[in-house]
């Protein structure tokens, strides 16, 4: 057995084989990340079974490019630290408009590839990201009604959409995005995971649509928008009466393309309520290793997840 495998097993002693292989690959690309990985897998809520499921998905999505994906995670960690430095100094995110994010991030295909690859691994390496995905699978989806029509706006890699499409209660799933490259990413994920992709459409959320859904996933989109309140109003209108939404946005989470800063979870809850949605459940998942109290005290990132319902 190689030293790298031994090291990976030491970092996460209870981890399954896919998790161990991913840690091993990450350690090869980014040995300085060992302390962070140790901290992440020492957490009591690092459910090894869910982590292993997620690691298996990531491994299949990355495929033969796993080493490059691990390199890209290293790059992402550096990019996030740069944004963190700006945020701590200035008390705001660097970018303030969608046009800036489009010019600097979204229109740069090479940048986007690295960014998305890095974020793929963050689903496992960042405890708050894993917690949100687990809550979606274990808490949100089981309360959908049988035969639910599910929409995801901005499906990213497609991990949430894959879970929703695979859920027995979902009769139809679909994904909307404004970026053809993002939809290609979702197609790749479904192909890698051996499932036919659901209908995926180039749709701007802000344009009127006659469709309505029983379930909407809106994860890590609000912080990318100039008008999050308007977006939530659209989510409300797209829900059928009694329909449910899974809304996830981070507070104090500087990143290269985040433009709207939420300073407290309560600010996001108020925004959701203000859109006419009834907040039913709330998950606050602080950044890896931080207690909620510490995250609030030092303005650390907190993934704020709301399960809401359209009342009328």
């Amino acid at each position: 057995m190689s030293a790298a495998v031994d090291a990976a097993r030491e970092i996460a002693p209870g981890a399954g084989p896919a998790t161990t292989r991913l840690i091993e690959a990450q350690m090869r690309a980014f040995p300085e990340h060992e302390a962070a990985l140790r901290k992440r897998f020492a957490l009591a809520d690092a459910d090894p079974i869910f982590c292993e499921t997620l690691a298996g998905m990531i491994e299949r999505i990355a495929g033969e490019t796993l080493a490059a994906v691990c390199d890209d995670y290293r790059w992402l960690a550096g990019a996030v630290l740069e944004e963190e430095l700006f945020f701590r100094r200035e008390g705001r995110y660097r970018l303030t408009s969608f046009a800036e994010a489009e010019a600097l991030v979204y229109a740069d295909a090479a940048y986007m590839t690295r960014y998305m690859n890095g974020l793929l691994l963050s689903q496992l390496w960042w405890a708050n990201h894993t917690a949100v995905l687990a809550w979606f699978r274990d808490r949100y989806l089981p309360a959908n009604r049988p035969g639910a029509r599910h929409l995801e706006v901005g499906p990213g890699h497609g991990l949430f959409l894959h879970l929703a499409a695979s859920d027995a209660r979902t009769s139809e799933a679909t994904g909307w995005d404004v970026s053809p490259a993002s939809l290609d990413q979702v197609r790749h994920t479904f192909a890698a995971l051996g499932k036919a992709p659901p209908p995926l459409s180039l749709v701007n959320l802000f344009e009127p649509s006659p469709e309505q859904f029983d379930s909407i996933c809106f994860s890590e989109v609000l912080e990318h928008l100039e008008t999050p309140a308007k977006a939530l109003a659209r989510v409300h209108d797209l829900l059928a009466p009694g329909g449910r939404a899974f809304i996830n946005a981070p507070v104090n989470s500087p990143a290269p393309d985040h433009i709207t800063l939420f300073s407290t979870p309560e600010a996001i809850v108020e925004l959701v309520s203000g859109a006419g949605l009834v907040v039913e459940e709330l998950l606050l998942a602080p950044s890896t290793g931080a207690s909620l109290e510490r995250a609030r005290k030092f303005a650390l990132a907190i993934s704020t997840v709301i399960i809401a319902r359209r009342a009328d």
């Binding site: 962070a36 630290l81 290793g289």
Partner: peptide, 9 residues
Amino acid sequence: EQWDSLANV
């Protein structure tokens, strides 16, 4: 323990 890369910033 609490001195990670983000706390270092």
